[in-house]
């Protein structure tokens, strides 16, 4: 019973609770479907998760800073377009690796710029992040549609397939990419002064400034970095689908927010870690792959994700915590 109590309190308990849920789910699905614990299924999960994962990390940092970035998916789309055009400019499917690298650099710059612009409006004008990023989202969506007339851009060089579909020692390359980015993100947030400043700004911007932190620069930087992650997601998206279209991945926007909350991020900012969010992502992926294997479609998985978030939030709420305490007291 003390274990139950630990589950419901503190960041360590948070992780343990998520691990427990994950273990139960994996056990359940492997009983329900013999194909669940096969290399093929694990591999396909490893290819599917990184995209949502990267976007979730891009959402995570702004939430920690007390905001929200609703423009992540369209930022990723615009960055993908930047890469696509660069490649088209250098001959499409025949473009050399230089064109790809140049395109990636351009994409990252575009993402950083879009993010920095949002950050600047939020920090220096003091407008509400939801509103700013919402306007940015509408703008980028419109920009993308205007530039592409709603059409796909496809026909990339073959080597891009490696990025989207290749494996290194049986580990999907997108997963490796995600792992590296997640590690960097963890270090950035937990170990650098900039990350520290992000947490402090997220819990009280004015007090952070009074303590001598450059909160405004922190905000600009964190949104810019969020934009950079969107760019990486956009590049990966192009490599996975072998095409770029504005609106690709649109449905992932609110799922990323869901994953962050599931991972115990404080919706008001100031508290939250990368590791539980990754656990939350794995749980979501297991739910969707598992349901898929036992014959349900992605829509049911979406519904289950929503219901699952409600269940977890209900369990975490003070009301149910008191209930658990009540029961555990009876036992002792």
């Amino acid at each position: 019973m003390t274990y139950l109590r630990r589950l419901t309190s503190g960041p360590k308990g948070e992780n343990a609770g998520l691990f427990l849920i994950l273990a139960v789910l994996i056990l359940g699905f492997s009983i329900a479907s013999p194909r669940f614990l096969t290399g093929a299924n694990l591999g396909s999960m490893g290819f599917q998760m990184p995209l949502l994962g990267l976007l979730t990390l891009a959402m995570l940092a702004p939430i920690l800073s007390g905001g929200l970035n609703l423009a992540i998916v369209y930022t990723a789309n615009i960055c993908g377009l930047t890469l696509a055009w660069t490649i088209m400019h250098f001959g499409g499917a025949d473009a050399g690796i230089f064109a790809f690298v140049l395109g990636c650099v351009a994409a990252v710059i575009v993402g950083a710029l879009a993010g920095a612009m949002m950050g600047a409006v939020i920090a220096y004008v003091g407008a509400h992040p939801i509103l700013v990023s919402l306007a940015m989202m509408i703008f980028l969506r419109g920009l993308g549609e205007f530039l592409t007339r709603g059409r796909d851009i496809s026909g990339f060089p073959d080597y891009m397939r490696v990025l989207g579909h290749g494996s290194l020692m049986a580990v999907p390359i997108p997963l490796i990419l995600f792992g590296l980015v997640a590690f960097a993100w963890h270090i950035l947030l937990r170990r650098t002064p900039h990350g520290f400043s992000t947490y402090m700004t997220g819990s009280n911007m004015q007090a952070a400034q009074y303590a001598g932190l450059n909160a405004k620069r922190t905000l600009v930087l964190i949104y810019a970095l969020s934009g950079v992650l969107c760019a990486i997601a956009g590049i990966l998206m192009a490599a996975r689908f072998n095409s770029v279209r504005v609106g690709h991945g649109e449905a992932m926007l609110l799922i990323t927010v869901l994953a962050c909350f599931l991972g115990g991020i404080d919706p008001f900012g100031g508290h939250g870690r990368v590791v539980p969010v990754i656990l939350a992502l794995i749980i979501l992926q297991v739910l969707s792959s598992g349901l898929n294997l036992i014959g349900a479609n992605q829509h049911l998985a979406t519904a289950v994700w929503g219901l699952f978030l409600i269940a977890v939030m209900v369990l975490r709420s003070d009301q149910s915590r008191q209930l658990i305490l009540l029961f555990s007291r009876k036992d002792t």
Binding site: L258, A296, L300, T302, G306, L307, L309, V314, S317, Q319
Partner: peptide
């Protein structure tokens, strides 16, 4: 009810119900 009964903030609840409503409807 979810917001008040369990003191969960509205953005979390409605993002969850958004997914639940839409997923169930499509299913």
């Amino acid at each position: 009810w979810l917001i008040h009964g369990f003191r969960i903030i509205s953005i979390v609840v409605t993002i969850a119900t958004f997914n639940a409503f839409f997923g169930l409807l499509m299913f």
